[in-house]
């Protein structure tokens, strides 16, 4: 643990200003240490009191928006979700997420990740477009069916898993843990019928085959999404599909309202529809 009794804390920050620097450089800042401060709080203090040109992305300050993924003391994590007191070093070392180009200072260019994400069709694919646009009811889904993908749907697309992945460190063709986990989130959804369309991408080089279960993605994920689990389950589905063992199932149908029976008088009417 860093020295909690110290009055000050030292930050070493990787800086890069594209109009001025030819390569990233390190800059040190000493700031007052406040109990309960996060790494993100420290960055704000530096920006407000020492160097207004320091750039990073952040928004919600509570681990929900996924903007402030950074390499903090060698580990990809959210700056807002990391207490200064939990870092086991005297100096807080902050760098932009690796495996993405640096736009400026701590701002990585995440667009390759989102391109890969979009290519894997992270949405429900069904034949009944009209029902999806103008729903007449809910698609049926049991709690057990929900559990098959719920964990993967907690992803906030912060990119920490991509920064930790050894394959993604060299191979830009590999889709990476986030897009693959999100493809599995939809493949595993009982309401989805897009397995064959996603297979067209997943069966090739961009699929899960370059994952060798080093497990870094799951180790760094700030939301417990466990992309490594999603990717292994995806491999099973695709191998089962190849050897014709995968059970193809129709996407869940719209639940029809009960036709018979009378409404209990103590149940109030639903509010009027707003959309």
């Amino acid at each position: 643990m860093s020295d909690a009794t110290a009055k000050e804390i030292l930050y070493r920050i990787r800086r890069f200003e594209p109009t001025r620097d030819r390569a990233p450089r390190w800059q040190a800042f000493t700031i007052p240490r406040v109990p309960g401060m996060t790494v993100l709080d420290g960055l704000w203090t530096i920006k407000q009191t020492q160097d207004a040109s320091l750039a990073w992305r952040s928004s919600c300050r509570m681990g929900i928006c996924g903007s402030c993924g950074m390499l903090i003391n060698g580990r990809a994590r959210l700056a807002c979700n990391t207490q200064v007191s939990e870092i086991d070093a005297a100096v807080i070392v902050v760098a932009p997420l690796p495996n993405f180009d640096i736009i400026r200072d701590l701002v990585p260019d995440l667009s390759p990740m989102f391109d890969a994400h979009a290519a894997l069709m992270p949405y429900l694919i069904r034949d009944d477009a009209r029902e999806q646009e103008r729903p007449t009811g809910e698609f049926s889904q049991s709690p057990q069916e929900l559990e098959r993908y719920l964990q993967f749907s907690y992803c906030i697309k912060c990119g920490c898993c991509m920064a930790a992945c050894p394959t993604y460190a060299t191979d830009p063709v590999y889709s990476g843990p986030m897009p693959l986990a999100q493809a599995q989130r939809y493949n595993a959804d009982g309401r989805d019928g897009g397995f064959l369309r996603r297979r067209a991408v997943l069966g090739g080089e961009r699929g899960p085959w370059r994952c060798h279960f080093a497990g870094e993605c799951s180790r760094v994920c700030p939301k417990g999404v466990d992309p490594a689990k999603a990717i292994q389950l995806m491999k099973r589905d695709l191998v089962w599909d190849y050897i014709r063992l995968r059970k193809e199932q129709c996407p869940a149908a719209v639940m029809s309202k009960p036709k018979a029976g009378t409404r209990r008088p103590d149940i109030p009417e639903p509010p009027p529809r707003t959309v």
Partner: peptide, 12 residues
């Protein structure tokens, strides 16, 4: 945008 390449490479 053309950013500064930051892939870890084989070190990763």
């Amino acid at each position: 945008v053309q950013g500064f390449p930051n892939r870890l490479g084989v070190r990763g």
